[in-house]
């Protein structure tokens, strides 16, 4: 085994050193509407109590923890997904009104509606008849 390969292996063995535990990146769709940005994030297994959405200095953080389920003597036979913490961060930018984010969680999908600030919304201009 070459020296370089060993270095790569060591990195893989200790993922996400910066945070306290490994986290999964939830898949996200972002849709722009005239008035807002809509963010849809898949967080299967996460209940409202385990979800934490925070906004601080222009950064939006989504953290979710699936409801723990401990069953005695449960043995895994076939695994396609692993259960663990979800974590993702977004930069909001000045066009978005970070203080008025609307968040709803339903059937494992987080839906965030982030309104655009007044100056970035389309404005209808009244035409006065002369």
């Amino acid at each position: 085994m070459s020296e370089e390969t060993q270095v790569v292996k060591a990195e893989r063995a200790a993922p996400e050193r910066v945070r306290e535990e490994p986290a999964f990146t939830p898949q996200v769709d972002v849709v722009e509407t005239p008035e807002s940005m809509l963010v849809l994030a898949d967080l299967p297994g996460v209940a409202k109590e385990g979800l934490d959405v925070t906004q601080k200095s222009g950064m939006l953080t989504i953290q979710g923890r699936p409801e723990p389920e401990e069953v005695e003597g449960l043995k895994l036979d076939h695994e396609e997904y692993d259960v663990g913490r979800f974590y993702r961060r977004f930069a909001l930018g000045s066009a978005l009104d970070a203080d008025n984010i609307d968040a709803t969680l339903k059937d494992g999908v987080l839906r965030l509606v982030i309104p655009k600030t007044e100056e970035f919304r389309p404005r209808r201009i009244e035409i006065s008849s002369g």
Partner: peptide, 10 residues
């Protein structure tokens, strides 16, 4: 709505 900025979900 339309206007996708990012699509990761399937």
């Amino acid at each position: 709505k339309g206007g996708y900025v990012r699509v990761e979900r399937s």
